[in-house]
Simulated assay, not measured.
Amino acid sequence: MDTHLSGLQRDGFVVIPALLSAAETSSLRNAATTATALTRSGQWPYFRTVPKQFPPWPRDVPPASEGGIWGVQHLLHPDMSGRAEFAKFYFSEKVLKVVEELLGLAGQDEEEEDGEGELLVMELLNLLVAPEQKDFELRWHRDDIPATVSPEEEMRLLKAKSPNGRQSHAQYNLALCPDTSLIVVPGSHRRIRTETERDADPYEPNMPGQLTVHLEPGDAVFYDSNILHRGVYRHKPVETGEETRLTLHGSVGLKEKESRVRATAVLQHSVGLWIDRDDASLSHISERAEKMRRNLIAMGRGEDVGYSLEG
């Protein structure tokens, strides 16, 4: 029987249809629409801007004529409108059950030897949106391996970041609108790039073997962060003004004694600067959510971790 884990290990991604109900999807779409409107109008300070692909991000929202934003950061921030709705989703058993399977925790006793009783770490929950007035594309990349490394170093890093074929985190896109933005090369998460892939244009529209991931509202795709992939963002139509892309982009980590690499990937987004605020507690969501938050606090504030990739 093909499981979510076997699909992820074989292909580097696995699509889960209808992870959320229509009602759950609608409620989250309303919250995401509000968050996007606040960010576009300059009332939310955490965002991803066109034409940058990686952090650090500018402090000001570019004008719509230049594309504006393509992402809203920190949906679990205590000041975020709709935080309760986003947190309810992020810490839901629907999501965490899949995460546990992909991280090899399914069926394990949650009690650790140190008595803290939680193996998962809260990481990130962001929102990917359609830019305004102009399309935007991400170049081909792996999330945590620079394109400039040699084939030998590329293989070493692939093995180091996925020991025994598993990563120390699970990341996903959950569509709230129809979404065809993610393009992947199946199987590329376990091998170095071919000569063709290494020499290709960074925005090559027809990479050999590429596949466009099709998601309907409520569908999710979990994918290996080191699969060769890129994103294509079509701008939202001016006529209607409706948001045409609202995709929740999240990651959940596995607690480790040595997690410097993962700390960089997570803390580079500045989550460490607010996660320990008194009003950031998640006890009202669940005891598990609060333990996951505390596991993130233990990773540090991230003031000196640098960036996984830049540009």
Rank of each mutant, 00 (worst) to 15 (best):
L19Q: 03
P217A: 07
P55E: 08
L158P: 04
A147S: 04
S150Y: 13
H169V: 02
Q268H: 09
V95W: 06
L215I: 03
T194V: 15
E258K: 11
L8Q: 06
L105A: 04
G311L: 13
R29A: 14
R166M: 04
S270G: 10
P58T: 05
E239N: 05
L127G: 00
L296W: 08
G104R: 04
T25H: 09
K291H: 02
P131N: 06
L246R: 04
G68N: 06
A18D: 10
E242R: 15
P186K: 04
Q73W: 01
L75I: 07
D224G: 08
A32I: 08
S26E: 14
G42K: 15
G82S: 05
S181C: 10
S81Q: 13
G104C: 06
N226C: 13
G104E: 02
L138N: 02
D199W: 15
L105P: 15
V184G: 00
H284Y: 01
L282K: 00
V149L: 09
T212A: 14
E66P: 12
A298S: 12
P78T: 01
R142N: 06
I69T: 11
A37K: 05
P63R: 07
H235K: 08
I275N: 00
A23F: 05
R193P: 05
I145Q: 00
W70L: 10
L124V: 06
V72L: 06
L215A: 13
A298R: 10
E303H: 02
P205C: 07
D135I: 10
W140N: 07
R10M: 06
G209L: 11
K134S: 06
E239Q: 15
P237A: 14
A220W: 08
R156D: 09
E123V: 04
P146T: 07
A18L: 13
F13N: 01
G115H: 15
E123G: 10
G117S: 06
Q268W: 11
A87T: 01
G12I: 11
V213R: 01
A32T: 12
L215M: 05
V266S: 00
I275A: 02
P205F: 00
P51V: 15
S162P: 01
W57H: 13
V149F: 07
R230Y: 04
Q268E: 12
G115M: 12
E93V: 12
N206Y: 15
S281N: 09
F136N: 01
W57K: 09
E85N: 13
H235Y: 06
D109P: 01
H214Y: 15
A31P: 00
R293H: 03
E195K: 11
S81A: 09
I275F: 01
S181K: 04
W70K: 09
E100T: 07
E195M: 14
E256N: 09
G165S: 12
D109K: 00
G68S: 07
H269Q: 12
H189P: 00
P55N: 12
M292L: 02
E152Y: 04
D60A: 09
S27P: 06
V15W: 08
A147V: 10
E154V: 03
D179E: 05
M299E: 11
N164K: 15
G253M: 11
A265K: 10
L211F: 14
P237M: 15
L120Q: 03
G306H: 07
V213L: 05
P17D: 06
R191T: 06
P178R: 14
G165C: 14
